[in-house]
Design a protein around this nucleic acid. Structure first.
Lengths: 198, 198
DNA sequence: CCCTCAATTGAACGCAGTTCAGTGATAGGC
DNA sequence: GCCTATCACTGAACTGCGTTCAATTGAGGG
């Protein structure tokens, strides 16, 4: 039986990812414990380290999946959006907001995981980020046809960052919780203004 | 000698805050250790817990000071700004950016400290936040005289959140580091557009 | 069927924050 | 000025975490 070991490894890996994903989404990143994980997966704590380098590796794997789901939601919203590029941007931003609200703890884990300061961002992160930026850049290119690429890149980043900031502070409990419809109104307000031809 | 104990307590408290402030600003929140703190302050670890409930309390005290310095910097920038309300907003936002860049680790500690999910935000936080919001709301009231207060509040929050998001992602290493002048350009771009009368 | 060696185990390690019984200084009464 | 009840201070010990590694197990070729 060649590959029996590899099969078990793969099954364990998948299992650990699913358990970690559920734990993070239900109780948050800080509730993730190596011992709980092992006990739920029915394996020894050491087995985790045969499959992942450390817990951060596992969290990054979960984050990659979360980021991918986020990208898919935004893409789906874009596909169903009207032709008007401004409306497309608003629909995507509100899809971003909805994802963050519906998957709050998983979404927070995307940013709360501690990265080694010198280590580069993982490839999948840059790829997914690039995909999101592309979704934004396309309507922007329609709205502002006559700008150079650097300016386009800055505008894309500024737009994403602004929406991200609105969602981040809007969902933050410390800011005493802004109602969801107010967040959506802020998003629409900002995007309409940012894309208005001066 | 009445109050000799109280004096020592106060001196220790001040000392601990200063050491923690320096540690956070130089090495980041995650480098703060109770034992290192005690050894630097020349006291026992237990003494920390006579003065602060736990390390989070100490960090929150440091954060209050950081937030206050941030507010002062923004206020100073506003005082030196031209009369034009749009320029005032830009100058304040760029002062916010400069503070975050110059005090990166201390600024990060403002958001990275873990808060108990049910616990309310501390008073000083709401006060300082309110002060910052007031700095923004004043020029906005000049620019948009005819809006109701709820809309003003939303616009103020949206504006702050957008600038915060631009600075946050701009300074984030994972986004491969946006040059400071590009961050300032994004800030100016966004604020000019957001305050343009449609 | 046995032997070899790698995968797996879980007790142990190092290192955090936090606690608490023991210790010593303080402040008030005499 | 002394005595003592009180309380702050001490730091070793406790708890809980991620991670490691000597011991053990079991898979797979001869």
């Amino acid at each position: 039986m060649a590959g029996k070991v590899a099969q078990r490894r793969a099954a364990l890996r998948e299992n650990l990812v699913l358990i970690a994903e559920r734990t993070i989404s239900e109780k948050g990143l800080t509730a993730l414990r190596a011992r709980d994980l092992a006990s739920e997966a029915g394996c020894a704590v050491g087995a985790i380290y045969n499959v992942f380098g450390d817990l951060t590796d596992l969290v990054l794997t979960v984050n990659a999946r979360t980021f991918h789901r986020l990208g898919a939601d935004v893409a789906e919203a874009l596909a169903e959006a009207p032709q008007d590029p401004v409306e497309q941007l608003i629909v995507m931003a509100q899809a971003y907001h909805k994802f963050a609200a519906d998957n709050h703890l998983s979404w927070r884990a995307l940013f709360d995981v501690e990265r080694a300061p010198d280590e580069a961002a993982p490839d999948w992160y840059l790829e997914e980020m690039g995909r999101l930026f592309a979704y934004i850049a396309d309507p922007l290119a329609v709205i502002f046809p006559g700008r150079d690429s650097h300016e386009h890149a800055l505008l894309t980043r500024a737009l994403f960052s602004s929406v991200h900031g609105i969602v981040l502070l809007g969902l933050d409990q410390a800011s005493s919780g802004v109602p969801a419809e107010d967040i959506d109104r802020m998003i629409a307000l900002v995007l309409r203004q940012l894309t208005a031809s001066s």
